[in-house]
């Protein structure tokens, strides 16, 4: 018995020592986690889904987010939570005869929605397409010459706010959903960042925060909403919300106001008198990738 236990004991000691070295090495390996996660409070980690937040929860969460914006970005912001208006479903229409491809809409989106400045991120991609086709595979989004060129059509693409959105269906945690007014939103505090929605969206409408967004204090848009343009946390998805924080207050989206060609039309699809309904009633419209059955709320049309 003794002969067997002694080397065993030495070996056990060695094993324990190796185990201790291993644990110490693992501690060192994981040490970078201590950096950013220091500032994560328990309240943040345990925050519930938007639909489960009581008015008191929202009050607490919004104030905390405002405080965080003050600390991280050195600017006083207000985070609101405008609700969908009754009997309102938003629609957008864009006149391809008028668009000149100047990307002012993309630029306005960049500023309005507090996008990361390094990447010049925006929710709008403007495609330059040769005459004689509307095939996106023959389009170019990376043009940088003065516009418009006479033989080109320009086509801005942003979230189409689909009635059958593939992106919300695939989300494993219901962090993105379609609101009653038709806007597809993301709860940035609930998204786990798996990017399945980005793979599912047929319009390249979604963006991921690959790092914490950088916005100088002077350029932060302080008029923010929880489901819309508040500065997004790193590691979560974001997308165009038709400027939810504006349109639910009755205002026009930032991209529309910025358009120097007046190519954009926005309004309530449920109101037969609205401009966007006038487009559908009087123009021949088409939607992007209609064959996919996503049923967009975004219509393209031509003057003639």
């Amino acid at each position: 018995m003794d002969e067997r236990t002694r080397p065993l004991r030495r070996r056990t000691l060695l094993k324990a020592a190796a185990g201790a070295v291993g644990v110490a090495a693992a501690g060192r390996a994981f040490s970078p986690l201590l950096g950013p996660w220091d500032s994560l409070t328990l309240d943040e980690v345990l925050q519930r889904h938007y639909s489960e937040l009581t008015p008191e929860d929202k009050e607490r969460v919004f104030r905390r987010l405002e405080e965080k914006a003050r600390q991280d970005y050195g600017v006083a912001v207000t985070i609101s939570d405008p609700q969908p208006r009754p009997r309102t479903k938003f629609g957008y229409a864009l006149n391809l005869s008028l668009c000149i491809g100047c990307r002012q809409c993309a630029q306005a989106c960049h500023r309005e929605n507090n996008h990361d400045r390094r990447t010049r991120n925006t929710y709008i991609t403007v495609m330059e397409i040769g005459k004689g086709t509307l095939d996106l595979s023959r389009a170019n989004s990376r043009y940088d010459h003065p516009v418009p060129l006479p033989d080109k059509t320009y086509m801005p693409v942003q979230c189409q706010q689909c009635d059958r959105p593939p992106c919300t269906a695939v989300c494993p945690v219901r962090a993105t959903w379609k609101e009653p007014d038709g806007i597809v939103v993301v709860d940035y505090d609930w998204c786990i960042g798996c990017r399945y929605c980005e793979a599912a969206c047929p319009y390249h409408a979604r963006r991921f925060n690959w790092a914490k967004p950088e916005v100088p204090a002077a350029e932060v848009n302080p008029d923010q909403a929880y489901l819309s343009n508040r500065i997004r946390p790193a590691g979560t998805m974001e997308k165009c919300t038709f400027c939810l924080h504006r349109v639910r207050m009755g205002r026009l989206p930032a991209c529309l106001e910025a358009c120097p060609a007046g190519a954009r039309v926005f309004g309530n699809l449920l109101d037969p008198g609205s401009e966007v309904r006038q487009v559908i009633a009087t123009k021949r419209v088409y939607v992007l990738k209609e064959g996919l059955g996503t049923v967009p709320s975004f219509y393209y049309f031509f003057t003639v």
Partner: peptide, 8 residues
């Protein structure tokens, strides 16, 4: 004709 806004 105008120079478009910078590309993202």
């Amino acid at each position: 004709r105008m120079v478009p806004a910078p590309l993202p």
